[in-house]
Nucleic acid binder design. Structure first.
Lengths: 220, 220
DNA sequence: TTGTCATCTGTCATGGACTGACATAAATTA
DNA sequence: TAATTTATGTCAGTCCATGACAGATGACAA
């Protein structure tokens, strides 16, 4: 890696660290891009060459984790039931997150605390998850050989499990957890959701209209 | 109602209609507040006296519906199981939405189309649902006599059902539904989620730590 | 080492979403 | 009609974000 690339990487990290330090002291909203740039002795215009927006910086570290889930699901054996495969994939994701975070626990928790403290940030974070959800849905549909546009079940399953995860993060945030507590809470909620769904999910069937079997319904 | 109040109401509606007409033609992002204000012959500053933000205007009509859910849940008989009560409350919400929308179907669908076309808008919409989710969670916890801070089950249940609704709206948006199709899709997904949860949900129990029973876990 | 090239950065100008302050115009009420 | 309340317009300013251009700096070959 050349000097140029090293410098860029350095500036990037410096911006992130300076930003989160300011976020923790002043709050996310109250911190301006100018302040962050000034703290790193860089022009505000340069800030936007490293990050598309202030939100991008704040949510930067969540991106890598989302990719982990899709690869984890793809690695599950073909015969595994959808719910089991998805739940396992998410558990692996959690383990990966734990392992990565352990490298620099302080920074990880700092980031989580900032995000958890800002509903708007939290919301955008899960909104960006939509892309990942689509990939997971496509993978589940592929495994079952169904059309993801016609069969809402894979999509629903992904949405349900994802929301369980979300609740896990929320609970952990409320309880002001350390890394262990965070992982515990998220895992627990995932297990809870899986336990609730396991008895019913396997029997779910669709009507001929491509909608739910439990009720004759509009073709949409 | 005095002249003053009538005028305000009129201006408010005019802003909404002008805005959505512009949104449909130019897109939400490409439409500026100045354009909306100009279309109604009002200063841009006045726009912000009617709506806190451009997003507020775009999501305005969703607010009234969210209130319906909480009142619908509160009206369910005390003995009803949590899942059944919540599902029924949401079904009543859907019926109410259908009835209200029937008054002015065109405007309703216009609004939905704009929101569905903008991921950011859609995300913010469901993010704002968080407030409603809290109320629903509190009501479910009250019914069960549990502490919402310690027992994550009501919260999880609300999150699961809400996400089913979200998927229903998404499916309807993709299929470019009319009002009937929209209601059908959302109802179907709600039924599907209820069917998936009914067998397992009643048996869900918690461990002594306030976490999930299926696994000994961290106190958080 | 030197000169060329690609790329990073700062500066400047601009636009769009908001907000506070203040004056004016309009409706309400007495 | 006079006094009061309230809505609106104007103005100035902040913050986020982006395009354009020029200068600085690292990469690389001769």
């Amino acid at each position: 890696m050349g000097l140029r690339e090293r410098k860029k990487h350095q500036t990037r990290l410096a911006l992130i660290d300076a930003a989160f330090d300011l976020f923790l002291v002043q709050g996310y909203e109250a911190t301006t891009v100018d302040q962050i740039a000034a703290a790193v002795d860089v022009s505000p215009r340069t800030f936007f060459r490293y990050f598309g927006s202030k939100e991008d910086l704040a949510l930067d570290f969540t991106v890598e984790y989302e990719e982990l889930v899709t690869t984890a699901l793809a690695a599950r054996p073909a015969g595994e039931a959808p719910l089991a495969a998805l739940a396992t994939a998410f558990r692996e994701f959690i383990h990966q997150m734990e392992a990565n975070a352990a490298d620099d626990t302080e920074r990880f928790l700092k980031h989580r605390r900032v995000i958890d403290a800002n509903p708007a940030l939290l919301a955008t974070g899960f909104a960006r998850m939509a892309e990942t959800e689509k990939k997971l849905t496509a993978e589940l549909a592929r495994r079952q050989g169904t059309d993801p546009a016609a069969d809402p079940r894979p999509r629903l399953l992904v949405a349900l499990i994802t929301s369980a995860l979300r609740v896990g993060f929320e609970c952990a945030a409320e309880r002001d957890c350390q890394l262990v507590g965070l992982v515990g809470n998220v895992t627990d909620l995932l297990n809870l959701a899986e336990a609730a769904l396991t008895p019913g999910w396997g029997q779910l069937s669709l009507g001929s209209s491509g909608q739910v079997a439990t009720k004759a319904s509009s073709p949409g």
